[in-house]
Simulated scan of single mutants.
Amino acid sequence: MRPVFHWLVRNKIRAACLSVGWAAFIFAGCLLPGKDVPSLTIFQYDKLVHFGIFAVLAFLCVAVYKHPGTVKNSLKVLLICTAYGYAVELLQGSGLVEGRSCDLYDALADSIGALIGILVFHLFRKLCAEK
């Protein structure tokens, strides 16, 4: 795991491309028409999906920064990911996508996932520190 983490942190352009690609994947998936989305109502599985995809997004976004360990950069990523999650939910509720609605609990799951993704990044940073 250490080599993958170091590769991600050292290759800022690739990390940025992965971040943008993942954000596009989220955008496309969240704006599919409701009839094309499988029903995931068991134990609010949908919230876990939102949590997970935004944890990955935040993890990738923190890696893009030259100094990913700063609180300022982590807060920027948290705010960006939170705003992105809310924006996607508002688009779902705008009527542009058939069969989708705005769910603020999904946006909350996005925000919590982003926070956990940032914390996991910092945990990996400590565990994978070069000696």
Rank of each mutant, 00 (worst) to 15 (best):
V62Y: 04
K66C: 10
F5C: 08
F54T: 09
F25I: 12
L40S: 03
Y84R: 00
A87F: 08
S94L: 12
A24E: 08
C61Q: 07
L91S: 00
Y86H: 00
L18H: 14
H67P: 11
D103C: 13
P3K: 09
L115W: 15
L108W: 02
E89H: 08
I116H: 08
V49D: 03
H122E: 02
V20Q: 11
L96P: 10
G113F: 09
K76A: 02
T82L: 10
Y65D: 10
F124C: 15
G113R: 06
V64H: 00
R100H: 09
L91I: 09
C17G: 13
Q44S: 11
G117F: 01
E98Y: 03
A23G: 11
G29V: 02
S101K: 03
L90K: 01
R10L: 09
I116V: 15
A15Y: 09
K126L: 10
I53H: 01
T41E: 12
I42D: 03
G21L: 07
C61P: 04
R125W: 09
Y105K: 11
V20C: 15
N73I: 01
F25Q: 05
V62G: 07
V97R: 06
L123I: 08
D36E: 15
T70M: 06
L18S: 15
F43Y: 07
Q92G: 01
V62W: 04
I112L: 15
V37W: 05
F25A: 07
L115Q: 10
K72L: 14
H6T: 07
P3D: 06
G85I: 01
F124Y: 15
A24K: 00
G93S: 10
F121T: 02
L40A: 04
S111H: 09
G85P: 06
T82I: 08
V120F: 06
N73V: 04
V77T: 14
C81M: 12
R14C: 14
G117W: 02
F124H: 13
G69A: 09
G99I: 06
C128N: 00
N73M: 08
A87Y: 05
E130A: 10
P33R: 11
L108A: 04
L32E: 08
D46I: 14
G93D: 04
N73D: 07
R100A: 14
P33H: 04
C61S: 14
V49P: 00
C61A: 14
F121H: 10
L127V: 01
